[in-house]
Design a protein around this nucleic acid. Sequence first.
DNA 1: GAGGCTAACTTATACGTATCAGAGGACCGG
DNA 2: CCGGTCCTCTGATACGTATAAGTTAGCCTC
Lengths: 353, 353
Amino acid sequence: MPSDPPPRMRDVARALGVSQATVSNAFNRPDQLSRELRDRILAAARDLGYPGPDPIANTFRRGRTGAVGLIIHEPLQYLFEDPAARLTMAGVARVCGEHGSSLVLVPRAEPGLPDVVPTALVDGFVAFCDPLEPERRELLRARRLPVVGLDAPVTPGEPYVGIDDRAAARAAAAHLVDLGHRRIGVISFALARDSETTVVSAGLDAPTGYVANRARLDGYRDALGPALGGGGRIVVVAARGVEEADGAAAAVHLLDHAEPPTAILAMSDRLALGVIAEATRRGIDVPGDLSVVGFDDVPAAVAASPALTTVRQPHARKGAEAVRMLLRPAPTRTALILPTEVVVRASTAPPRT
Amino acid sequence: MPSDPPPRMRDVARALGVSQATVSNAFNRPDQLSRELRDRILAAARDLGYPGPDPIANTFRRGRTGAVGLIIHEPLQYLFEDPAARLTMAGVARVCGEHGSSLVLVPRAEPGLPDVVPTALVDGFVAFCDPLEPERRELLRARRLPVVGLDAPVTPGEPYVGIDDRAAARAAAAHLVDLGHRRIGVISFALARDSETTVVSAGLDAPTGYVANRARLDGYRDALGPALGGGGRIVVVAARGVEEADGAAAAVHLLDHAEPPTAILAMSDRLALGVIAEATRRGIDVPGDLSVVGFDDVPAAVAASPALTTVRQPHARKGAEAVRMLLRPAPTRTALILPTEVVVRASTAPPRT
DNA sequence: GAGGCTAACTTATACGTATCAGAGGACCGG
DNA sequence: CCGGTCCTCTGATACGTATAAGTTAGCCTC
């Protein structure tokens, strides 16, 4: 037996002989009718099985959804799998919850399926992509909704929450320089989409479309360039992906060299942990024979052996502030840059002489 | 300068001297008009900066949102923080992504804020709660939307995806019995909301509103009851929360006893890891002096030292199947029970004689 | 050349609600 | 007794779209 359609507001109104407007007021503006009638209406609504004002029609009429959208570049599950993303999302989710806003995770455009960005039912977006693909950026702009970038602005000059990637990377590199390292390997994220693990011939000057990537390479150069002016050597390898295995694969390119680096700077803890794994596999002592520096200060960094020296950034706060910025009545137009800090642990030491 | 409102479909229609319906068809039903006119309309739309059919109005007209809702009992960020929840959510997210559905995380009702369940813009819900609070269940029912439970049905008899908690718990307990343990401690989840860590006087028969909790206690009893018929002792402690610290706190109640248990069954790996931490703190050797069994087989279980013996359940698949069930054209009315498996690692051994 | 068919549009309507502008009565002060 | 004010409630309208039903012209067939 197919259940008959749920009653509408007008049905409730008719049942009581009042106007639909009054029923609406009973639900939304108690001050617009007598308490007595209001109680009668709500009771009748309950008796009739009226589900309350239809959410879609309500949203349509009001023009507001009460939801925050989140756009990513990776498959949706990445948000629950990647340790750094998780921390950030926890911050995002917390503030959404506190505001009573739904959090709408918008899947990336799967081949064959239409992109959801043009149709997502949200009042604004947090864009957790670096950078947003141009087509999506266009779709996003068309929505004319407020957008706050996470880690990078959607378009230069637009509001975002992030860190000073360049300064953070500079500090990480400076730590190695201070320890006395002169042959240094850098493992960066992929410089372009769908690229394989590869030694980057252009080194730290390699062009890339990724904002944070670019800034971190600059930061490494800031510290390494002057220090290595005379001798030393820097080799940059772009990893294929973001996982530990990708870091290990990248490390292979560095460690197979006749004169391998005495230290490796990785752009994430996951990559760095992969490096440590690869080194361990080869019987290379960390930090005795090889120093390793990560980026993010993910929970696994402390737990690793040796505990990972890394750059701490306030992931959860980053996510939280992005949502706050988005939800602010008068949307901010400026960037919010959060502090970072080099956390020295057990994976770095002076090079063996 | 405030940007003027975006053009509407009718504006595009007027600009070209065609009807609004034709513009709609240009976007949705290409076969309803000549290719030539269609191209002209789409070009004009682009030129005018028309964002495309308004998502809210579109949803209103069509009556479908294209989104899957997810309801939880805990604060929203729990989904990104708890290891088991994360695994499950990854499965949920993956299937949503594959279907091109948005995933709407619905916050719990914060005091002072209205519950979002009555107004969430979704086509159906996955209820990741055990059990759903009665008020919310009522709100949910009022929506008349399809619902699939995760771990437990929203209402007995309704569709859900889960495991055979009783059999799984029975197997875990049987493992300890087989090893020869007769003094066994059980650390269960809280038996009621907002309760403190407490020794449960009713033991394995303690009443609780949580479905999985009940089933697992039953499972433990299935295996422990007969085996301990003669002697032995079972003490049940209900933990305060779900975190490692809560497991450690519960362990205190068990280990402070004059004749402490030789083995502990915890209802989650997190609780179990807390037990191991507490044991280590006291210099109690695991598994020499104390065997510990968890539940979930979370990533940290293998990584722990000693590696944790636990009950593996297919978290990601659970989440994936729940969404599949929800999205199926003809919603299933039956439960889907996924297999579990006791994974014996290094945290269990025969009791010291 | 009439009848019928199709392609290509248009007209009209409905989706369910919130809210603005009033209507009508009660009540009050003068 | 009259004008005004407040309190309740009603009528009408608009939100932006998708789509069923209708119209017109062109073409084909016999």
